[in-house]
């Protein structure tokens, strides 16, 4: 049982206590982020057991390295970065297994560029009110999920962190170790990819 006093400490106080060897403070820090770490991991690996493994790896790695945390970013950004790295390692393992089985091939970068290049398109149909685009439509849900899995990692990661996890562009940039302008570019292309994907889906169903 964690001491009640620990629960009243703010993040910075908990980090300081954990860095001074208070293991209960560290446990409390993890309790505050465990749901978000698990959710992020699940969105990357799409498997509950693997997401749980990522949570364990993240927690123990953070404990071993807590004194390396210098407070340049927030604790949540720091631990998210650790979690994302573990999740991506697992994702890459899954991918290499899938590649061997030739089940799922990620789209390559050139293909994405061609796909999202709509500047030459003369007519764009406004399907935003089309009734087939509702969340009761399982086919549509599957399409979005599968497409997200097939997106190159660099676009998928920014979409997950920014659009699904609700992190700011600056935080996403820190977590991924890229510039904010690169983050914005990837986000923009990822979003255009989603629009084009739905465009093709609706066109096929009209």
């Amino acid at each position: 049982m964690i001491q009640p006093k620990i629960k009243t400490l703010d993040e910075q106080q908990l980090v300081e206590a954990a860095q001074n060897g208070d293991t209960y403070a560290f446990e409390e820090l993890i309790r505050r982020y465990e749901d978000r770490i698990y959710s992020l991991a699940y969105r990357v690996v799409h498997d509950k057991e693997e997401a749980y493994d990522v949570l364990q790896e993240t927690a123990i790695s953070a404990f071993k390295n807590i004194n390396r945390f210098k407070g340049k970013s927030s604790f949540s950004t720091w631990i998210y970065k650790i979690a994302l790295n573990f999740a991506l390692m697992r994702k890459r393992k899954q991918k290499s297994l899938l590649k061997k089985a030739q089940i799922l091939k990620p789209e390559d970068d050139d293909k994405i560029s061609q796909f999202v290049d709509i500047s030459e398109k003369q007519n764009i149909t406004d399907w935003s009110e089309n009734p087939i685009l509702n969340l009761e439509n399982q086919e549509l849900k599957d399409l979005l999920m599968e497409s997200l899995k097939k997106l190159p990692e660099k676009y998928r990661n920014v979409l997950i962190l920014k659009e699904l996890e609700g992190r700011s562009v600056e935080e996403v940039a820190k977590i991924l170790g890229i510039s904010t302008s690169a983050t914005k570019t990837r986000l923009h292309r990822g979003k255009l990819y989603l629009r084009e994907l739905l465009d093709k889906y609706v066109t096929q169903h009209i």
Binding site: Y38, K48, T125, W127, L194, L198
Partner: peptide, 27 residues
């Protein structure tokens, strides 16, 4: 510009659908 209005509306709709497709998973 009708073309760009359609582009914006569909862009917004795509994101709205994407946001609602994946709910956070809890332990």
């Amino acid at each position: 510009c009708q073309r760009c209005l359609a582009l914006f509306n569909t862009f917004e709709k795509a994101l709205e659908l994407f946001h609602s497709i994946e709910k956070p998973v809890k332990l």
